[in-house]
Design a protein around this nucleic acid. Structure first.
Length: 559
RNA sequence: GCCUUGGUAGCUCAGUGGAUAGAGCACUUCUCUCCUAAAGAAGGUGUCGGAGGUUCGAUUCCUCUCCAGGGCACCA
């Protein structure tokens, strides 16, 4: 009996109760969402608790306790339910019989890596854009947070049935790229940096690489400065982008699409209009375009933006917003039902205009676009900025802290909470480091497995009714919660829920390990209890592994 | 000024209208001849920033307010 099955049964009981009073069950429209059960904090409150009696009493036309009294009678008839009691103002506390709860261990083992997968987002095609850092420098701490959160979000969405494309938008057009090119060229030629140059040391490194790969650069620059700049800029861009991609892969973050802004500006082979040019026509057809002061505008205020936005400037040049619009249309054309943008708080001013683009393009701004804003992250109190030059690169972080610890720590907090991390704590291999606490629990399940095998304990017998120890029902309860946790994390786009769950699961597992032996002591005989516990041990290991995988964190068999 | 995100234990932070608001750390004690002590057990901690409101019930929702971060370009 899973909480999902219980919720389903409860919904039917509630609807039947209403129907029996002469009501139209459709009128109160009970769903499993309404009857979802929670795991009570206090174990005296049973295995699962429901508050539906309080929620529905008024609608049904009675009072909570009276309704609960009728419901518990029916709940107790459910196969697998040991008892149901009323408590407090109308809570119903449900206790499962041990065999029914224990079934979970076998279910988890049999479903393996699929345990936890669900279909709450089935049928959705989601475009998830994140990181999208300019290719003018290495990724820093802020990008690293979005990389960890974005990739974990994608994994959680997929586990809940969505089809997800991870996308990185490359701002490879425009003045920042020119500035980048001039900075690297000066470095390559050994000249003094231009006044507005990028300050980071990586510019010097890129300059050296360019000099090496373009041996005639100095001559070319003397002859044709623009040509030298163009070649330098292109090469530096490719080098930098490759470095970004490489560091992301090492961070276990994979993008399905790297989308170049240039492709939006590019005309067709035979001079066909560019995607940006086409997009203005499409928005005009929708009736949201107007001209004023020589500029072409989109009336984004029709969709809640705080001001209208310029598409084409008075001098005929497209704004960045124009590229954003064309990019959005590209996502639409590629058939995504929902476009999610994961942006840093410094981009929060984009929400209005991005949403407005969606509306102007004819999308539903409530359901087809989601802009998630993440707050800044500090490491050891230092705020890092690429432009200021005091960067800590992703590659440095990987070396210092390791991909697992970094991903775990960055994914364990909601995106909208400002975060300050203590580098030494992230790095520590002690029990005050949750990533090691969770990984250790997993490694322990593997150690038990190895020892069980050596002791000749197999999973040939499974007697779930024997799993009656307090720590066993706790552990089973946690395992039963997992699919719901994944579904909730997906619906809310909050992968940190996975991490928090894993920490709880690890704690319950350690407690169980301390109380219940899988391998008998000394000369004691192996019984079905030991064999059944092996199933439970393996189930715990499986869920720890599945959860860590959603966070992109490894689950070592030994630490 | 306007928009936006935070304010929860000494610290870092969880908490999708429910029962006595939680976890880890820090502090004090215990527990390894026996499956990994990177673990477990015990000990106390709160004006949930403040004031109103909605509700049977508010840390959670609404309004106002105080404090802090971020944002308000025919820049990219």
């Amino acid at each position: 009996m899973t909480p999902q099955e219980l919720a389903h049964a409860l919904a039917q009981i509630l609807a039947a109760n209403f129907a029996a009073r002469g009501g139209d069950a459709a009128e109160i429209a009970v769903t499993e969402q309404d009857t979802q059960l929670e795991r009570p904090k206090n174990r005296e409150h049973g295995d699962w608790a429901s508050n539906v009696a309080m929620k529905f009493a008024k609608r049904i036309g009675t009072n909570p306790r009276a309704l609960a009294e009728e419901l518990v009678v029916e709940i107790e008839k459910i196969d697998g339910v040991a008892k149901a009691e009323i408590a407090g103002p109308g809570f119903m506390n449900i206790t499962l019989d041990a065999a029914s709860a224990g079934e979970t261990a076998r279910r988890v083992v049999e479903q393996g890596a699929d345990y936890g997968r669900n279909d709450v987002l089935a049928g959705q095609r989601i475009n998830l854009e994140f990181v999208s850092a300019n290719p003018t420098g290495p990724l820093h701490m802020g990008h690293t947070r979005w990389a960890a959160l974005g990739d974990s979000t994608a994994r959680v969405l997929r586990a809940s049935g969505a089809e997800v494309t991870n996308e990185y938008y490359i701002n490879d057009a425009g003045s920042q790229m020119n500035k980048f090119g001039r900075s690297v060229l000066a470095a390559a030629l050994g000249e003094e940096a231009p006044e507005d140059a990028y300050p980071g040391e990586y510019i010097q490194t890129l300059g050296a690489q360019v000099r090496e790969q373009l041996p005639n650069l100095a001559e070319l620059a003397a002859e044709d400065r623009d040509a030298a700049l163009e070649q330098t800029q292109e090469l530096a861009y490719q080098l930098q982008l490759a470095e970004i991609k490489d560091s992301l892969e090492r961070f276990n973050v994979h993008f399905d699409v790297y989308f170049s802004e240039r492709t939006l500006h590019a005309k067709g082979e035979n001079g066909e209009p560019s995607p940006i040019e086409l997009s203005i026509d499409r928005l005009r057809e929708q009736g949201h375009v107007f001209e004023e002061d020589d500029a072409i505008w989109v009336r984004t205020t029709d969709f809640g933006d705080d001001k209208d936005r310029v598409f084409t400037r008075g001098n005929g040049i497209y704004t960045y917003f124009a590229a954003d619009a064309a990019y959005y249309l590209s996502k639409m054309d590629r058939g995504f039902t929902e476009k999610i943008y994961l942006l840093g708080a410094d981009h929060h001013g984009y929400i209005g205009r991005l949403t407005a683009i969606a509306g102007a393009a004819g999308d539903n701004i409530e359901t087809d676009i989601t802009v998630l804003i993440g707050q800044m992250v500090n490491l050891d109190g230092a705020k890092l900025s690429k432009r200021a030059g005091n960067i800590i690169e992703l590659t440095d972080l990987l070396e210092w802290l390791g991909a697992d610890a970094l991903r775990y720590w960055l994914a364990r907090y909601p995106a909208d909470s400002p975060l300050s991390l203590d580098g030494e704590k992230v790095r520590s291999r002690t029990n005050d480091n949750p990533v090691f606490y969770v990984q250790y629990a997993h490694a322990r399940t593997c150690a038990v497995d190895r020892n069980a095998e050596a002791a000749g304990i197999t999973r040939e017998a499974f007697a779930p009714e024997l799993l009656t120890h307090e720590t066993e029902t706790d552990l089973l309860g946690k395992l039963q919660q997992y699919p719901g946790i994944v579904a909730g994390a997906a619906e809310l786009r909050e992968p940190h829920r996975i991490a928090r769950f894993l920490e709880e699961l690890a704690a319950v597992y350690h407690r169980w390990y301390d109380n219940c032996r899988v391998i008998p002591l000394g000369e004691e005989p192996v019984t079905d209890l030991h064999r059944t516990r092996l199933w439970l041990n393996d189930a715990a290991g499986q869920v720890l592994r599945n959860g860590l995988d959603l966070l992109g964190v490894s689950a070592p068999e030994r630490l």
